[in-house]
Design a protein around this nucleic acid. Sequence first.
DNA 1: TGTATTTTTATTGTCGACAAGAAGTCGGCA
DNA 2: TGCCGACTTCTTGTCGACAATAAAAATACA
Lengths: 245, 245
Amino acid sequence: MSSTASKDDERVEEAEKLQTHRRGSGVSTVYETLRNEIIELKLPPGSPIDEQQLSDRFALSRTPIREALVRLAAEGLITTLTNRATIVSNIDFLGLPEFFDALTLMYRVTTRLAAANYADGDIAAILVQQKAFEAAVISRDVLGMISTNRDFHIAIAQAGRNRYYVELFTRLLDEGRRILRLYYSSFNDVLPRQYVGEHEEMIQAIINRDVTLADSLASAHADQIVGQIRSYITADSRQNATLAL
Amino acid sequence: MSSTASKDDERVEEAEKLQTHRRGSGVSTVYETLRNEIIELKLPPGSPIDEQQLSDRFALSRTPIREALVRLAAEGLITTLTNRATIVSNIDFLGLPEFFDALTLMYRVTTRLAAANYADGDIAAILVQQKAFEAAVISRDVLGMISTNRDFHIAIAQAGRNRYYVELFTRLLDEGRRILRLYYSSFNDVLPRQYVGEHEEMIQAIINRDVTLADSLASAHADQIVGQIRSYITADSRQNATLAL
DNA sequence: TGTATTTTTATTGTCGACAAGAAGTCGGCA
DNA sequence: TGCCGACTTCTTGTCGACAATAAAAATACA
């Protein structure tokens, strides 16, 4: 049960704080907490999810825990083996081409729609996220870059005012976060700096309501990111490849 | 509760049959049954969902009922007012433009991908659905047309091999079924006959792997359907509009 | 008679306990 | 010694009951 001391202590503290709940609040707390931990790979793919354990941790009965788990399962973040275990869903490397295709399409569509539909306040919201991303890049906070980049693009999607796209895009970006987390140690800072510039161009195109430009910028941006992920996954780090034997 | 006698009898029989369940089967039965009834407007938007009542109907405790409801809520098919009632979600007429936009995009993308990616057996599966649609059109079974049309396009989407699109498209088509059900009495048979032809063209384009043609056919088809829904919604049936007063 | 306040009631949210199913364990047998 | 089957155990799935909450009803008051 208790694998690493420090992390468990941390969690216990969390549990203590949550001893008292407002009636329906517990389940969303559990849901959001687990969701974050899954996306941030604190709970790596394949981790077993034990209801009893969570019940202890959050000081709740198994019923609300279960409800949170059902929601996570509906989102595909966890997988339940009936009558047996429930585990954090694996990252589907086989399905990566589908993922890239959908991600690219959503980048384009949401950016297009933002340019076409944005209203008062939307640009401000986008700029807030862009500043946060910039800050993360400057301070070389790789994990921060990953999550603020996501927030930036979701802000754009929201300006586009289409809930179906926002929902799918959110899921895709969060799945992307999981993947990027796997490789974040390989991040260098040339690409992120480039992203800052690309983001700025996109914002400008949106402001100018230039749908066509927004589209092509988003498309190029998506290609960049997809290419980045691809290169991390297929990176050739065989130190001994050219060794004379 | 008891609106039409025959259908309620049917339900009772259903319930009786389910007196014994394999361990995890009850919840998916409840989920699927309710899902269908919502989409087919047997449970109209705004209908209260009473957990106790469902518990009686399916001869299950409230716990598995609740799990099914959570899943339906995650899909947006029902809305839960915390601590109060849970009702069948209303059809969002305000969000119709977003819906049409996403629907059209999914029509195009899935048909494109089908042309690009279909493999052995996919065409056969599509043809089966097309035959079913044709049969529904010939026998003027409007409700059948609505559901077989959905199945036809989902078969195409599946041939395209992108689970993200399949999932979103399924949701959109089912939401469309709810809307069309509202107006199905206004169906005439000129449009459905045209759809049969359009479907055949689409199939041919897919078989020929003509992505561009598949796209434009899908686009036109989507426009047709969107236009049809629009015309139903905004239909001017004021009998007394031109009455001399 | 109309409004504010208390009481009732109906329904959801939560709980602890039990039942069923599957994996792992142990013992028996060839 | 290796394989098969019963047994144990652990986790999930289900149940019935209780608690909290908000609407509705009933009551008191101006």
